[in-house]
């Protein structure tokens, strides 16, 4: 997992096995798991409208991601992403 932390950061692109490309928007730790908030992008890396939550995992074959689809989990992690967004004062300067 630490490896992922090192290798993955906001604005990186994840390419899944099915060739979907996802832009990483935010990463959080929740209940000892890492959750990634991403948006699917097209060939030119422009965001499409599919926003996806991924959960990072690791098994004997290495790291993998699972698309989080169940509402209960989304309802738990969504506020944290929102909190990150709302509380990130740095971007005030950006505006």
């Amino acid at each position: 997992m630490d490896k992922a932390k090192e290798n993955m950061s906001i604005e990186d692109i994840i390419t899944l096995g099915d060739n979907r490309e996802l832009l990483i928007l935010d990463i959080i730790d929740y209940k000892e798991s890492k959750y990634i908030y991403c948006v699917e992008v097209d060939e030119e890396e422009n965001p499409k409208e599919n926003f996806i939550f991924l959960k990072l995992g690791q098994d004997e074959d290495g790291e993998y991601v699972i698309e989080v689809k169940d509402e209960a989990t989304i309802n738990k992690i969504l506020p944290i992403f929102t909190a990150n967004y709302l509380n990130d004062k740095d971007d005030e300067e950006d505006v």
Partner: peptide, 28 residues
């Protein structure tokens, strides 16, 4: 639902900047 996706990561070719990323996050 539980399908594991192996993946690769790479740096984005675009340099969006924090502001653009925030916009996308917010819209989502």
């Amino acid at each position: 639902q539980e399908e594991k996706h192996r993946f690769k990561t790479r740096k984005s070719k675009k340099r969006r900047g924090k502001k653009a990323i925030k916009c996308i996050v917010g819209a989502g």
